[in-house]
Write a protein that binds this DNA or RNA. Structure first.
Length: 673
DNA sequence: TTAGGGTTAG
């Protein structure tokens, strides 16, 4: 038998036992001394999953040439054993064997997987020493190693020095920038690539699609789509899924849906991409409908689609659906950390913080995001102390990041824990060396200003290294409004106007501040600006889930079939409340109307309609969960306290910022919000 | 014989 007679045998062979037989024949016919055949045998053992035999054979070779080393290294790489890849590489260098292109490529990939930048750089030195720095395979591997280890600065240095760059090198850099959140740099690099006369392929387009979503540039996405059609690039399921994802992330749900509907064969990921698109854009009902359609079409929802669906449940407070997803997940035994965290978030956002907590307590291991989530959940429920306790436990187990402190500071701010806020902001900067972001500043400014410490809040804003944005000035202004601090308030109001807010509510705050300060001209100017920009106050909207169905109420909505009953109940309640000492707070009606009309308007507030509907359609004692798209109105807040006493019910209101738990005439926020 | 790619919680 000659050597090449074995080739077809190797190619088709997937069983370790068979390979051993071939191995034996080769030994007896004296062919194993041939280097190529040994490498092939090693690869065959590896392909059959028998790395032990592969390594045993490797150990027996008296004079190991580079092919044998490579066969072993590639075998470990294919079996996803990066540690072993590096070990064999080390041994090879130690024995004085000169690595080649394949060795370096695979070894660098292993460092990338291990996120071992130090070892990767050591290998790169060896690459230069052996004269392989101009090899495009090795080059793109080192670029990828730097990129995936989060070091684009070093990647670009290597890239600029490269003498030859093929399409893979360019792609590596483009996707590297995209995945480190630098979409603009990715697009710039693509333009450079075009100037060099390179033609982008499908993988480059995938990178650009992600860049488009990254920098919210729909036009870029559309041009990528057009390019793919013009050049007739193959549109496989991955390509089309990426298009769906790109359009969805850019908020173009109609186009995303159109691409999705036209797909000849969809997979689980395509479904997930669109479901998450709907959920992220607040189109919760569409997201949940699509999840059902996905199952009807014979697809089993995976973690990604379930997580997105849970996010949608939180949006519309669909506790019933959220619970059924929980049940599904538990039955199918697909619970993992991501899903558990999403469930915790869902229960908390649906008002059931205790359910969230018990799920959290039962988790065997908790990652950073899980801790951040539970801290944030306690924050929005106004349990600042509990959030702080959890944070204290967390910091012994896992290193907190910027998001942890954002969640903690916001929790402290919801609970008015001023001293703690100052302290932990300080700890974040000085001990954890985390540079405070706009969000961190906004939380602390909010906390200080609401407590009346507007001077300190102003100084904090002035101390910011970056230009203060809208969030901090708005926080300062609302504190000044509350405490009637006119001088600093005026400063804040002017800064807010300079930054040209897009939110009508912000203008209303500025106008109200000027009005309260009797600066009528300024107030009028603000109202005029609003009118000119065509801005209208967002209409108040509340929702309540009754028997698993979501019912929505707009302010003053008379069209509801039960409207008569709702109003009658509200009138009866009002009479009882008045007997208990309630006086309507008509200052919350910000229009110039007769007192009597104002009172009537308060009665038509959407949260009141939702509460009354909930009371009418649930059995006595049932807890109600109300959602509101704006902050809860001050008068409704009083009214809900009274109602909780009269009807002996727990009423939970989730407004746009936080939760209010009303029970026995008291709100969990302690009237501080 | 070795390099680049899609969805997912705060």
């Amino acid at each position: 038998m000659r050597l090449h007679d074995f080739k077809p045998l190797f190619l088709g062979c997937r069983h370790s036992a068979l390979i051993s037989q071939i191995h034996a024949v080769m030994v007896s016919s004296g062919l194993l001394s041939h280097g190529n055949s040994i490498s092939q045998l090693i690869s065959s053992y590896a392909k059959a999953g028998d790395l032990e035999s592969a390594h045993k054979l490797f150990d027996k070779i008296p004079l190991r040439r580079v092919d044998s080393w490579n066969a072993m290294i590639i075998a470990y790489s294919k079996s996803e054993c990066p540690v072993e890849v590096v070990n064999v590489y080390n041994q090879m260098v130690l024995e004085g064997v000169k690595p080649d292109s394949s060795t370096f490529t695979v070894a660098l990939k292993a460092c990338m997987i291990l996120q071992d930048l130090e070892k990767g750089e050591e290998i790169w030195e060896k690459v230069v020493e052996c004269g392989y720095e101009n090899d495009v395979f090795v080059g793109s591997s080192v670029l990828n190693m730097y990129a995936k280890c989060g070091n684009m600065d070093k990647a670009i240095v290597v890239f600029e020095k490269m003498q030859r760059r093929d399409i893979v090198c360019w792609t590596t850099m483009i996707t590297g920038f995209v995945q480190s959140g630098k979409g603009k740099e990715a697009v710039d690099l693509y333009r450079w690539m075009q100037r060099e006369g390179m033609v982008g392929d499908g993988v480059v387009m995938l990178g650009l699609m992600q860049a488009s979503a990254n920098i919210a540039d729909t036009k870029l996405g559309l041009s990528v789509h057009g390019y793919m059609i013009r050049r007739a690039l193959p549109m496989d399921v991955n390509m089309l899924t990426s298009l769906v994802d790109m359009y969805a992330k850019n908020g173009e749900l109609e186009i995303a849906t159109r691409v999705f509907r036209k797909m000849p064969y969809r997979n689980t990921v395509s479904w997930s991409a669109l479901i998450s698109g709907f959920a992220q854009n607040g189109l919760a009902v569409d997201a949940l409908q699509l999840l059902i359609e996905m199952q009807v079409s014979g697809f089993t929802p995976d973690v990604a689609s379930l997580v997105s669906a849970l996010l949608a449940c939180s949006h519309v407070v669909s506790l019933k659906l959220g619970r059924s997803i929980h049940g599904y997940v538990a039955r199918k035994v697909i619970m993992d950390q991501v899903l558990s965290t999403a469930l915790i978030d869902m229960y908390a956002k649906c008002g059931l913080i205790s359910c969230a907590r018990s799920l959290y307590d039962h988790m065997s291991s908790k990652d950073l995001i899980c801790w951040n989530t539970i801290i944030a959940c306690y924050g929005i429920h106004g349990h600042g102390r509990e959030a702080l306790t959890l944070f204290q436990q967390m910091k012994h187990k896992i290193e907190p990041d910027h998001a942890t402190f954002a969640a903690l500071l916001s929790a402290l701010s919801h609970s008015g824990l001023v001293e703690e806020g100052r302290h932990w902001f300080d700890v974040m900067v000085n001990e954890y060396k985390i540079k405070p972001s706009e969000k961190h500043y906004a939380c602390l400014v909010d906390l200080l200003a609401r407590a009346g410490e507007v001077e300190e809040a102003k100084e904090l804003i002035i101390s910011m290294e970056t230009k203060p944005g809208l969030a901090v000035w708005v926080a300062l202004l609302s504190g000044c409004h509350k405490h009637k601090k006119l001088l600093i308030g005026e400063l804040a109001a002017n800064r807010v106007l300079e930054l040209i807010p897009e939110n009508a509510g912000t203008y209303v705050l500025v106008a109200n501040f000027f009005a309260a300060a009797k600066m009528w001209d300024e107030a009028a100017v603000v109202r005029k600006v609003m009118k000119k920009a065509g801005m209208k106050k967002v209409p108040g909207y509340s929702g309540v889930e009754v028997n698993g169905r979501h019912h929505a109420f707009l302010m003053g909505d008379t069209s509801h079939p039960q409207y008569e009953q709702i109003i009658r109940l509200l009138c009866n309640l009002e009479n009882e409340m008045k007997a208990m000492g309630y006086v309507p707070k008509t200052e919350f009606v910000l229009q110039n109307l007769e007192e009597e009309v104002k009172v009537k308007m308060l009665c038509n507030h959407s949260e009141r309609l939702a509460i009354a509907f909930g009371l009418l359609n649930t059995t006595p004692g049932t807890r109600l969960l109300i959602t509101k798209n704006l902050r809860v109105c001050g008068d409704c807040h009083e009214v809900t306290k009274f109602i909780s006493v009269i009807v002996k019910r727990e009423i939970i209101v989730r407004d746009v910022k936080r939760f209010h738990h009303f029970k026995d005439g008291i709100c969990s926020c302690g009237d501080y919000w």
